[in-house]
């Protein structure tokens, strides 16, 4: 899908739902795979990562959209990166202050939100061409879609890898953890499984509708 030069500025339900379903960053666009595979060993890590990314995404898209007519075309990427990095620094300090444990669990991946291609992609493809309100709604949808994706992976890996969800034991103390699920290969297995499931879900209505 390519956006026309003179983009439609009306806000529809699809502005929000695009990121949740049709262009889900994890399951459809398969973007931002580093945090997706690396921090999803537990549901809480995945959820926090999703929320942090959503915050950076929404705030930077708002700012970028507001100054979209002021930035010369030649330096737009550098400008976007500076804006995104500012918000990432904010989030970085915020998480450090709220929960040091979480900060240590997420590690370098908080700083790496700067180079998350979902954010730069949204800034370039959407926020730089649309008014602030529409950009924010679209960015929020993308953030929610990303968070859902991370949570799906993190939840599955925590349930199978530790028998817990949000640290609450689901199967009692005799549960046999699947060690592989908290290791990197487990991330790929679970991601593959969810991609398959999502592709199945998305293809069903399309074939019935005759597209």
């Amino acid at each position: 899908m390519s956006l026309p030069e003179q983009a439609d500025d009306s806000i529809t339900l699809d502005t929000f739902l695009e990121g949740v379903w049709r262009q889900n960053p994890v399951f459809v666009m398969v973007l931002g795979m580093c945090p997706t595979l690396a921090v999803t060993v537990s549901a809480i890590n995945a959820l926090s990562m999703g929320v942090a990314t959503t915050f950076v995404l929404v705030s930077s898209c708002l700012l970028i959209s507001m100054i979209r007519n002021l930035v010369p075309k030649e330096v737009r990427i550098a400008t976007y990166i500076v804006i995104i990095a500012t918000f990432v620094t904010l989030v970085d300090y915020l998480i450090q202050a709220v929960s040091l444990k979480l900060y240590e669990a997420l590690g370098a991946f908080i700083q790496l939100i700067v180079v998350n291609c979902i954010i730069l992609g949204r800034a370039e493809a959407h926020a730089s061409k649309h008014p602030p309100l529409k950009s924010v709604i679209n960015a929020l949808g993308m953030g929610v879609g990303f968070t859902i994706g991370l949570f799906a992976l993190g939840g599955t890996r925590e349930i199978l890898g530790a028998g817990n969800l949000f640290g609450i034991s689901l199967f009692g103390e005799h549960f046999q953890p699947w060690v592989v699920m908290v290791l990197p290969p487990g991330g790929f297995f679970v991601l593959g499984g969810w991609l398959l499931l999502f592709a199945l879900l998305r293809s069903k209505p399309a074939t019935e509708g005759g597209h």
């Binding site: 046999q176 699947w178 060690v179 592989v180 699920m181 290791l183 290969p185």
Partner: peptide, 10 residues
């Protein structure tokens, strides 16, 4: 190989 990685004790 999968169960070796998943259940190393068993």
């Amino acid at each position: 190989a999968f169960v070796q990685a998943a259940f190393p004790v068993a």
